[in-house]
Nucleic acid binder design. Structure first.
Lengths: 106, 106
DNA sequence: TAAATGTGTAACCCTGCGGTGACACGACGA
DNA sequence: TCGTCGTGTCACCGCAGGGTTACACATTTA
């Protein structure tokens, strides 16, 4: 598994981060301050979450004057979806081979 | 996002757990002791990892006399892959709508 | 220019998690 | 029957992560 994939899974493992992503997807964009206004956590907490999401490339930030607007980035999700499907397929094949060998062995 | 989905992402966020899953997929099955023999961690650590993977339904355990053999389960991966692809698709549509609105607004 | 508003960041708290060693229990083989 | 071997579990350690408050800095606007 690629190293940054684990970073992405870790990013997706937190419920607050999913709420941030959902809010951004619904509204199109948002700042740390506006997001904190709709969440039960402080702005600083939101900033930290956005930093994690940014490292995982799940959000994009554009400076707009004195504020920083964040947008959602779907690409890592589609890439990870393909990745997981491929691994599951490998496992399936492996299990099929083992099952066949076991039946021959009887 | 479903609650146990975050449990699954958390399970996938650890490198040692991926090594456990890979070993199980390669060999078809394994016990906590045999796995610990091929990993740089103790048996107790492997047991804990297997417990996490079991809660996420990524492995299956069958008692065989005095030992417990673990097998890999691909289903959660395929399910999560579909889930992520669907979410990414939603985001894509949302972004397309917003982009169109922005262009009309000019 | 001064007030207001948003961001950046430092210091700190507490919980969870990955890891360890030690020991008790149960099942198998000699 | 007794030693062996695998599992289960308890107590503990260190650190990263999610959370907070407080304060300094930058940019807009009245």
């Amino acid at each position: 598994m690629a190293a940054h994939a684990e970073e992405l899974f870790a990013a997706l493992a937190d419920p607050t981060r999913w709420r941030v992503l959902n809010l951004l997807a619904e509204r199109g964009e948002g700042t740390a301050t506006t997001l904190a206004g709709e969440l039960p956590v402080s702005r600083v907490a939101v900033v930290k979450h956005l930093a994690v999401l940014d490292r995982a490339r799940l959000v994009e930030s554009r400076r707009r004057g004195r504020e920083v607007r964040y947008t959602v980035r779907p690409e890592p999700l589609t890439a990870t979806a393909r990745h997981l499907a491929a691994i599951a397929h490998e496992w399936d094949e492996r299990l099929a081979v083992i099952k066949r060998l076991a039946e021959e062995g009887e």
